[in-house]
């Protein structure tokens, strides 16, 4: 958590919040997004992720895992959507290792990437999502 907030603090205007309860991979994700030219914030605790997104209006895209210990990705998406102030729009991308996971109708339109994800497609999707928010 600490790491995340510090990192969030490092970058003035993070565009992307990445939520995954597997902490090991978060620095790699951040490095990956940075190399692609995106400012990002990392969060390993899905329960705090919504608040971080609310705190940083610059965040236009949340990439989340689905299967997480405390709160699953779908719930996070629904919670964040419910909390967003009027006029603010956040795009979502699901990045999961579970190929069989069932996704409910209300989030069915959200693009899903199966781990290990096709990086080029993922970057393309991030760009188009961010373009939609601006």
């Amino acid at each position: 958590m600490k790491i995340v907030t510090e990192r969030a603090g490092q970058h003035e205007a993070p565009q992307i919040l990445l939520v995954d309860d597997e902490e090991d991979i978060l620095p790699e994700y951040q490095d990956f997004l940075e190399l692609e030219g995106f400012e990002s914030a990392m969060c390993s605790n899905p329960e705090e992720a919504a608040q971080i997104a609310l705190d940083h209006p610059s965040i236009g895209l949340v990439i989340t895992d689905l299967r997480m210990g405390k709160l699953d990705g779908a719930s996070l998406i629904r919670r964040l959507r419910a909390m967003l102030p009027r006029g603010r729009h956040v795009e979502f991308i699901i990045l999961t290792g579970d190929a069989t996971s069932h996704v409910n109708d209300d989030i069915a339109h959200i693009p899903v990437f199966i781990k290990p994800a096709d990086t080029d497609a993922l970057v393309a999707e991030i760009r188009s999502a961010l373009a939609r928010t601006q």
């Binding site: 991979i25 790699e28 990956f32 290792g97 579970d98 290990p116 994800a117 990086t119």
Partner: peptide, 21 residues
């Protein structure tokens, strides 16, 4: 298989992202 695949996908994902970086 779904559980196992998920379990395997986690390290594979890490390897892929880290190797890509």
């Amino acid at each position: 298989i779904s559980g196992t695949a998920h379990e395997l996908n986690q390290p594979l994902n890490f390897i892929k992202v880290a190797a890509t970086n």
